[in-house]
Write a protein that binds this DNA or RNA. Structure first.
Length: 795
DNA sequence: AGCACGCCGACT
DNA sequence: GTCGGCGTGCTC
């Protein structure tokens, strides 16, 4: 028997199957979708079996070393989905397979040095190392700078190097005890108080318990438990333990809400498709507070009744405890949660629950779209316009596309939900590709908050140079008096704090990238967000040696400071990357705010969604237009979405809410229309702009990026590619470039790009594949090429 | 991606 | 005459 294997090497020349003999002993275990360890050149690496056959055209075959799995980690559907993904995103097959598994399952490779003969003459320093550690790890050898010497010894056959594939995923095990027999309990001596206690506890609660929990509950020591095991009262066992990230919390069981007429009308066609096992993509358009979540929950409920499963995607940042609470509350332990806040091990555990069929619902961020369910009944993507659904590195997939592809395979509906749908989706819904479902009313009949737009230029003219308008300050003061709460939103992206010299105008730049360095208060350092370069804050301008250097930009820290200066009595909680990097701190800050420990919640993107506190009656957006000027054709769309989203935070309950938006361009339509939250108008207007500018949804876009240390080389190759494209594509397609990338240099590599805009180009994918093939050399002086079919970020 | 093989300049 | 630089090509 011969197995065709895709090995764990993401490189152009390796992106195909390699054949291996299957040893007799493994013939009954091997099958498509299991992972194996195979010899590859001088080393051993992991691979996926793609198919089995009897013959191979290759003469000298090596044998599979061992199997990693007993059962396929990827089922048939996911195996074939990986093929589709490879094809769609032009990635390596191994990357497509790998992305479907939790990070913990990715193989790690270790190198070890072994002594060939124990007693032999070795240089004394090497001998010492081997005496301490044998086999010697690569890491230790490297740390002691003896790799060179070892290389020499390998040549003389005194030492050999072995490769070991390490599976990082480890199952957490724990010691459990179980009551042997109830009758035996009477034999426990009357003076053995602790033993009595233990047996009582087990009888009353679960008969089987983890020893650690049991000890804590009863106060028994290990000695007590050991005696009981020895006497046969208890049976000891070692069981797998799931790391449950939510075990500390209890979830109150919640029931269905009664749907409003509006919701009933919307859910009916969805349930119809669920019941008939048919694919259909729905776009559920409803303003914040219109009750989309309840529709999701009731659809999932229906799916569960049919013994099928559901995937619910939410953007990373809105995967808040509140969100999880709603799902766990309704569906209890049938829910697995997958998001980046979990440790690698926790994610692995959640994945295994899905793989084993122990749960039927997964709530998670982008990658949860690959949850290994066997019978999907619905896929839901909440906040479908969110850009985080697009993965920015290979495989560059969009979760929405994967969702639709999977739903076709399973025969189930997809629900895309949003208050501000992406233009692409809304256009498709208008065309009838998706079915549009509208929720027009807020559930509690609450009016949308009143939105006031403040022209900051006017403030400046009136002599107010601070970042707070007089109106905003006044309103803040009012809320404080009424003991109500305030959210201040700062859009930091593209407007981060940088340092500029007031004398010569020099801005601190990253020495390796064409971006300015960001000032980090907490470490008093300057950091590059692209390559991680970090340096101390200079005391003098590096150019003119002037001491008049100044911090520019409006970081959250700076806002906090200024607010404190203006209103020292206001208590503020700041949420940004600095304050929420520790696990669980996000949650802590939010609950502190909920308890009323602060008046103002100040933050970036991450506070824009999902938080739902009854006492918030004022939302302030400090600078609405910071993202409007980014080199991105979606800038207006993103601004409108963000403002609408943020405004939705105010007055969700019985108290009326107010929103203040500060801007330097109040006349811009995406800011004007955010005032009335009129999506339809915004859509019309923006569609006109897109049509004139020839952007999606009127045109598709593909982006090719070339990078190289030498500017001319990068530009030259980009030019060559542009020429190929121009000669091979139809006249209706537009090729922009080559032009320098918006970020012209990253990690000392110059970047050039070429944008293809097209409406219908059936051969494009084949052509791009060819270009990728032709230009993805790995040689020393080779350019690096990236192709993103349907990019979200054009940089 | 690794890694071995293999062909030309500065050393014993 | 050898050691070692890193260009080239292979991995079932």
């Amino acid at each position: 028997m011969i197995a065709s294997v895709i090995v764990d090497v993401p490189a152009k020349q390796i992106d195909r199957t390699f054949d291996y003999k299957v040893p007799e002993a493994l013939t009954s275990v091997v099958q498509r979708g299991i992972r194996v360890i195979v010899p590859f050149g001088p080393r051993k690496i992991q691979g996926f079996i793609l198919s089995l056959k009897e013959e191979s055209s290759v003469k000298k075959l090596k044998s599979i070393e061992e199997v990693v799995d007993i059962e396929p980690v990827l089922n048939e559907e996911l195996m074939s989905l990986s093929e589709w993904l490879t094809d769609q995103t032009l990635c390596y097959r191994i990357s497509a397979l790998q992305v479907m598994l939790p990070a913990a399952m990715k193989a790690k490779y270790n190198k070890f040095f072994h002594l060939i003969e124990e007693k032999q003459h070795l240089p004394s320093h090497i001998k010492e190392l081997f005496e301490k550690e044998s086999p010697l790890t690569w890491k230790t050898a490297d740390a002691h700078h003896v790799l060179k010497d070892l290389q020499e010894l390998i040549r003389h056959r005194k030492v050999e190097m072995k490769y070991v594939v390490k599976q990082s995923a480890n199952v957490k095990k724990a010691r459990f005890v179980e009551l042997a027999d109830e009758k035996l309990m009477n034999e426990i001596p009357g003076n053995a108080k602790k033993q009595q206690l233990v047996s009582d506890h087990l009888l009353k609660n679960a008969r089987k318990m983890a020893v650690t929990d049991l000890k804590e509950a009863t106060g028994a020591t290990s000695a007590v438990i050991k005696t009981m095991i020895d006497k046969g009262y208890l049976i000891e066992s070692f069981n797998e333990l799931y790391r449950d990230p939510f075990q500390e919390r209890t979830f109150e069981k919640t029931e269905h809400f009664k749907l409003t007429d509006d919701q009933k009308t919307a859910i009916a066609p969805i349930l119809e498709k669920v019941n008939s096992y048919e694919q259909q993509t729905f776009l559920l358009h409803g303003v914040t507070g219109s009750g989309k979540t309840e529709i999701y929950l009731q659809t999932i409920d229906q799916v569960l009744k049919q013994k099928r499963q559901a995937i619910m995607l939410v953007p990373e940042i809105s995967l808040t405890p509140q969100m999880v609470q709603r799902f766990k509350g309704r569906f209890g332990d049938q829910v697995a949660v997958m998001h980046s806040g979990l440790s690698v091990g926790e994610k692995y555990d959640e994945w295994r629950k899905i793989h084993r069929g122990e749960v039927n619902v997964v709530v998670g961020a982008r990658s949860a779209i690959f949850a290994p369910f066997k019978k999907l009944g619905v896929i839901i993507i909440d906040e479908e316009h969110e850009t985080s659904y697009k993965q920015e590195d290979s495989p560059r997939y969009h979760a929405r596309d994967v969702a639709i592809e999977r739903s076709n395979r399973h025969g189930c509906p997809v629900i895309l939900g949003s208050a501000t749908p992406s233009l692409e989706s809304f256009a498709r819904a208008k065309k009838g590709n998706y079915q549009l479902l509208e929720l027009e009313y807020r559930m509690n009949q609450q009016d949308l908050p009143e939105v006031k737009i403040i022209d900051m230029r006017e403030e400046l003219r009136e002599g107010n140079r601070s970042m707070f308008s007089r109106d905003l300050l006044e309103e803040i003061e009012k809320r404080i008096e009424k003991k109500e709460q305030i959210v201040l939103f700062l859009n930091r992206r593209g407007y981060s704090s940088f340092i500029m010299c007031r004398d010569c105008g020099t801005v601190m730049q990253c020495p390796h990238c064409e971006v300015s360095l960001t000032y980090h208060r907490s470490k008093e350092s300057m950091k590059c967000h692209y390559c991680g370069h970090e340096e101390h804050v200079p005391e003098k301008c590096p150019e003119c040696e002037s001491e008049h250097i100044r911090y520019f930009g409006t970081g959250t820290q700076k806002v906090e400071e200024e607010l404190f200066k203006l209103m020292p009595h206001v208590k503020t909680i700041r949420m940004d990357v600095d304050t929420t990097s520790k696990k669980g701190s996000h949650e802590k800050l939010l609950s502190a705010f909920d308890r009323g420990e602060a008046d103002v919640l100040l933050g970036t993107q991450m506070i824009a969604k999902g938080l739902d506190f009854p006492n918030i009656t004022l939302v302030g957006v400090l600078s609405a237009d910071t993202m409007l000027h980014l080199p991105d054709f979606r800038a207006s769309e993103k601004t409108f979405q963000l403002l609408t989203q943020v405004s939705g935070r105010a007055g969700r309950h019985d108290k009326p809410g107010e929103v203040i938006i500060q801007t330097y361009t109040p006349e811009h339509f995406s800011i004007e229309l955010a005032k009335t939250q009129n999506y339809e108008w915004f859509y019309q207007k923006e569609m006109m702009m897109r049509k004139t500018a020839q952007y999606p949804p009127f045109y598709y876009i593909s982006l090719i990026t070339l990078s190289h240390e030498n500017v001319n080389k990068a530009a030259g190759v980009c030019n060559e590619i542009a020429d190929i494209l121009k000669s091979r594509l139809s006249d209706q397609s537009i090729i922009l470039g080559p032009v320098a990338s918006p970020i012209a240099r990253i990690q000392d590599k110059y970047r050039y790009q070429c944008i293809i805009k097209y409406k219908h180009e059936p051969e494009l994918k084949t052509l791009l594949k060819k270009i990728l093939d032709q230009y993805s050399d790995t040689g020393k002086d080779a350019v690096t090429i990236h192709i993103d079919v349907q990019p979200y970020i054009m940089m």
